[in-house]
Design a binder for these strands. Structure first.
Length: 554
RNA sequence: UGGGUCGUCGCCAAGCGGUAAGGCACGGGGUUUUGAUCUCCGCAUACCAAGGUUCGAAUCCUUGCGACCCAGCCA
């Protein structure tokens, strides 16, 4: 699909690519890559990168690779790889090639030999602590390791023996020989290979040395013919090293690294380490807990791929560190769901209403539209009877100002049904309201009553013809806009982020609800069936997002 | 004077020397059998600050100020 790019919002990366194309750089090709390390689940910050990389490729008739940056087997797993593939596909993207940094372990090794032969890499016997001490500080230059001038022959021998497994983990490291006095600390002879006897999820025990990110990433990009290597701002300082490696090795192509600001969303975190901690220490129920900002969590909560893609386009792309308000994400999902979700009625906290003048035992089938604007979505039958359930909040003995729901002696419209009047409140011995005695106006089905205006409309279900359900209301996971800035982000956790309602009743049509569908429970929000905890006999709904609130009672 | 990057509305963000787009949020009208949706209107004489160049500066120059990133054998 090619896109008319003057319809897409301009951003600095689109401009760079347009310029490159007009200069026929890379022979007019655009190849990008999304390169996650498989050490956790993807989150909404990754969604931004996915939409960027795949989007750029689609817009320019180019290609985008999914590449696993799997050079640190200690933290990586097949489970994470599978989840990443699933999430990228669910977001609606197809990779042109599925790659792994580990596919290149052999060429990477040969390139390292070349660097050594060129006198641009050496085997160092300093310990990690010593290397840190030799590196200097932000304001002071580093100093050379005693091994820095080891001969090429000796370096070659040692590096080959590193690979052969003759040395213990940590005993040696291969370092690029650049500049120990560079003001850019990344250029002070960075380590590019370490000895680590760890089973690799793909290469097994073939290797006991593993290449480091800075050395691997640029070469992987070059091998794959990537034209634009898009990454986040913290790698700006690494670009000189990215370019240095490729310059020494004379690779067939030299991709351009371009950095952009990572997504920061208010009231949430996108640090993999911290998300991992929430899961392993059971602050949430897994990576796909609907409160998590992971793709899996958002999916389970009922977010749609379309809404997430729209969000990623709306937030823009710059080099400015910025915080996106939750309102933007909520707007995106509401916009999609408002248009596409089927309407239904569900009473979350039921209050029994007996319609005294309605015939005992009669059940009427009312036909109600599945969508108020999109009539092509059809209608459904909703049973009405003498005893119905309404929301406790929709009745008030002492109404707050501007209240337009049910009050004693007042009238209200039952959505898609009749107008009822509340005649009497029934209470138990403790004074709790347990039932309302109401009467209905048989002349008000499908038409307004004569001579009076009924302002309020409330939802309802028939007591007998409704189904029990559990409804989970999710609130923000954190109480502060920027939990990452707290001393301890766990202190900012919202203890009430999960609210479980177990006495809900949903209209009959929802008994056939399926996981793929999204529903608007009229007047309360957007919901979907929980993909994990629902079963044939049990309905569990997750609230994706509330409806926009135009009126909030005190 | 360690290096790198960034400062345009409450939050994002266009703008690339010709006189401040757009979105979200917010406020106010209208429609509505969802306090939803939809719709109309309003919302920066002003672009971190101060100088300078120019007929003309958010855009160019100078000097300040502020914020973020970097001292893993993580990515």
């Amino acid at each position: 699909m090619s896109t008319n790019d003057n319809q897409l919002p301009s951003n600095f990366i689109r401009q760079i690519i347009a310029d490159d194309l007009s200069n026929n750089k890379n022979n007019g090709k655009v190849v990008t890559r999304f390169p996650p390390e498989p050490n956790g689940y993807l989150h909404i910050g990754h969604a931004k990168s996915i939409c960027l990389n795949f989007g750029i490729a689609i817009e320019n008739n180019g290609a985008c690779h999914l590449r696993f940056d799997d050079t640190n087997p200690e933290k990586e797993s097949i489970e994470y790889m599978e989840s990443i593939k699933r999430d990228v596909q669910w977001l609606g993207f197809k990779w042109n090639e599925l790659c792994h940094a580990s596919d290149y372990f052999e060429p990477l090794y040969r390139y390292a030999l070349q660097l050594i032969e060129q006198g641009q890499a050496y085997v160092d016997s300093l310990s990690a602590e010593q290397i840190r001490a030799y590196r200097g500080t932000l304001t002071e230059p580093g100093k050379a390791s005693p091994d820095r001038n080891r001969s090429v022959v000796e370096n070659l021998d040692l590096f080959k023996r590193m690979r052969a497994g003759e040395f213990a983990d940590g005993q040696y490291v291969l370092r690029a020989k650049i500049d120990m006095a560079s003001p850019n600390i990344n250029m002070r002879d960075p380590a590019i290979y370490r000895i680590r006897r760890v089973h690799h999820q793909r290469t097994g025990n073939d290797w006991c040395i593993y290449p480091m990110y800075d050395y691997t990433h640029c070469i992987s990009d070059a091998i794959e013919g990537i034209t634009h290597s898009l990454c986040t701002l913290e790698f700006e300082d690494h670009r000189p090293l990215y370019d240095w490696v490729l310059d020494q090795l004379h690779t067939p192509c030299h991709p351009q690294q371009i950095e952009f600001a990572r997504l920061q969303l208010e009231y949430t975190i996108v640090s993999k380490r911290k998300l991992n901690q929430l899961v392993t220490e059971k602050y949430v129920n897994g990576w796909d807990d609907p409160r998590m900002p992971t793709i899996a969590g958002l999916r389970r909560a009922g977010f749609t791929p379309k809404a997430l893609r729209d969000f990623c386009e709306r937030i823009g792309l710059t080099k400015q560190n910025s915080w996106i308000e939750m309102g933007v994400l909520e707007y995106c999902i509401r916009e999609d769901l408002n248009e596409n979700a089927w309407r239904a009625m569900a009473v979350l906290q039921p209050l029994r209403v007996v319609i005294s003048n309605y015939p005992e035992g009669q059940v009427e089938s009312l036909e109600i539209s599945n969508h108020p604007q999109r009539h092509e979505l059809g209608k459904r039958q909703v049973p009405f009877s003498k005893v119905i359930l309404i929301e406790q909040d929709d009745f008030a003995q002492i109404p707050p100002p501007k209240y337009k729901r049910l009050i004693v002696g007042g009238e209200v419209r039952l959505r898609g049904s009749y107008v009822i009047r509340c005649d009497e409140v029934i209470k138990d011995a403790d004074g709790n309201i347990i039932e309302l005695q109401c009467s209905y106006d048989p002349e008000t089905l499908g038409k307004n009553p004569e001579g009076r205006k009924v302002k309020g409309v409330i939802h309802w279900v028939s007591e007998q013809q409704s189904y029990p359900a559990e409804v989970r209301l999710y609130h923000r996971l954190f109480n502060v806009p920027q939990p990452d800035n707290e001393e301890n982000f766990l202190d900012a956790l919202n203890p009430d982020s999960l609210e479980v309602l177990t006495d809900c009743r949903v209209e009959a049509s929802l008994a056939k609800a399926n996981v793929e569908n999204r529903y608007q429970f009229e007047r309360t929000g957007y919901f979907c069936l929980d993909a994990v905890d629902s079963s044939d006999g049990k309905l569990v709904f997750n609230r994706t997002v509330t409806l926009r609130e135009g009126w909030v009672k005190d």
